[in-house]
Simulated scan of single mutants.
Amino acid sequence: MTLHLVDNFTLTTERLTLCPAVAADLVDYRRFYAVSDVLVGNYRGGRSDAEVAGILDRNITHWANKGFGVFSVRRTGDGAFVGGAGLAHPDDWPSHELTWWLMPDARGTGYATEASRAIIEWAYTVLGWPRVETHMRDGNSAAHALAKRLGGTLDRRVVFPDGVTRDVYLLPRQVSA
Rank of each mutant, 00 (worst) to 15 (best):
103 M>P: 09
104 P>A: 04
104 P>T: 10
104 P>D: 07
104 P>Q: 06
104 P>V: 06
105 D>M: 02
108 G>W: 06
109 T>G: 05
111 Y>I: 08
112 A>R: 06
113 T>D: 07
113 T>H: 11
113 T>C: 09
114 E>C: 05
116 S>W: 00
116 S>V: 03
116 S>M: 04
117 R>H: 02
118 A>R: 09
119 I>W: 03
120 I>C: 05
120 I>V: 15
121 E>V: 00
122 W>I: 04
125 T>Y: 01
127 L>K: 14
129 W>G: 02
131 R>I: 03
131 R>D: 11
131 R>K: 15
132 V>A: 06
132 V>S: 07
132 V>T: 09
134 T>K: 01
135 H>C: 11
136 M>T: 14
136 M>C: 14
137 R>Q: 09
137 R>P: 01
139 G>L: 00
139 G>T: 00
140 N>V: 00
140 N>E: 03
141 S>M: 10
142 A>K: 15
142 A>T: 12
143 A>Q: 10
143 A>F: 00
144 H>C: 01
145 A>D: 05
145 A>K: 13
146 L>R: 10
147 A>R: 04
147 A>V: 03
148 K>A: 12
148 K>M: 09
148 K>D: 04
148 K>P: 01
149 R>Y: 02
149 R>E: 05
149 R>D: 05
151 G>L: 05
151 G>S: 10
152 G>V: 09
152 G>M: 09
154 L>D: 09
155 D>E: 14
155 D>H: 10
156 R>S: 13
156 R>H: 08
158 V>P: 03
158 V>E: 14
159 V>T: 15
159 V>Q: 15
160 F>C: 13
160 F>Y: 12
160 F>L: 13
161 P>G: 13
163 G>R: 08
163 G>L: 05
165 T>E: 14
165 T>C: 00
165 T>Y: 01
167 D>Q: 11
167 D>A: 15
168 V>P: 08
169 Y>C: 10
170 L>D: 13
170 L>G: 08
